[in-house]
């Protein structure tokens, strides 16, 4: 059974249907990338998976259980963590407070020691987060904010990590460091669903990928298949990997 099954979802903003009949699956332990240009429906798809938008048709199943009508906090508590586009940290909270909020459910159940253990894992992955713990998150650089945003999602110990354009607005060296972290996380068994506009980045680390165009899935395949697909090369890559 796949960890995530998206079945024929349709999502609209008022009259405008942005996602039309999208279906795909994410298996345990793999990285799946969704590619597409601006306005293709990538963010809308992610937001509907995590309960911030409702799909009017179809179903979304996580670990076999339908989450289509669940509230965002219920979905988060099932083990899905989204790193939203533009980081969306709480800027006036310190980095530590942002991480505490990421681990909200566990801290509410009194599992502070688990949170402390998670912090150690985070510091190993992103040593800079430790140095910035007591600073307001809004004062960090874009790259540091992205690390904190990923760390905030990870401290919830998710089964599925969803990332919306993690490379957006970051320096190439920072992008490299963050994508290296995704590979490390995968090797630790984490499942990742990545939405990325920079196709070569997404295809480099994923197992399978889908291309969204105009709200529908235009192409699907393994990373290698898509990297050598002439349509993908022309529209997103420019050259083959």
């Amino acid at each position: 059974m796949p960890l995530l099954e998206v079945q024929d979802i349709h999502v609209a903003y008022g009259e405008l249907e942005v996602v039309r009949g999208v279906s795909f699956t994410v298996e345990r332990g793999e990285i799946v990338t969704i590619l597409g240009s601006n306005g293709a429906g990538k963010t809308t798809t992610l937001r509907s998976i995590v309960g911030l938008l409702r799909s009017t048709n179809g179903d979304i199943r996580f670990d076999g259980k339908s989450i289509r009508n669940a509230a965002a906090h219920e979905i988060a508590n099932l083990g899905l963590a989204l790193v939203p586009e533009g980081r969306q940290l709480f800027p006036e909270h310190t980095v530590r407070e942002n991480l505490e909020l990421g681990a909200y459910r566990r801290l509410r159940s009194g599992k502070r020691s688990e949170f402390v253990d998670s912090l150690d894992e985070i510091f190993e992955l992103f040593p800079r987060v430790r140095e910035r713990l007591e600073q307001p998150a809004g004062l960090l650089s874009g790259g540091e904010q992205q690390m904190v945003a990923i760390a905030r999602a990870l401290v919830s110990r998710p089964q599925l990590l969803l990332l919306d354009e993690p490379s957006l607005g970051l320096a190439p060296i920072m992008v490299r460091s963050i994508f290296d972290a995704f590979v490390k996380l995968k090797s630790r068994g984490l499942t990742i669903l990545l939405v990325e506009q920079m196709a070569w980045l997404g295809l480099e680390i994923c197992d399978r990928a889908h291309v969204l165009e105009g709200g529908t899935l235009a192409l699907s395949g393994t990373a290698r298949e898509l990297a050598y697909n002439p349509r993908v090369i022309e529209a997103y890559l420019g050259t083959a990997l």
């Binding site: 309960g51 965002a72 906090h73 939203p84 909020l101």
Partner: peptide
């Protein structure tokens, strides 16, 4: 919205 993503 973001708070909901934290499980709040």
């Amino acid at each position: 919205d973001v708070s909901g993503l934290m499980g709040i």
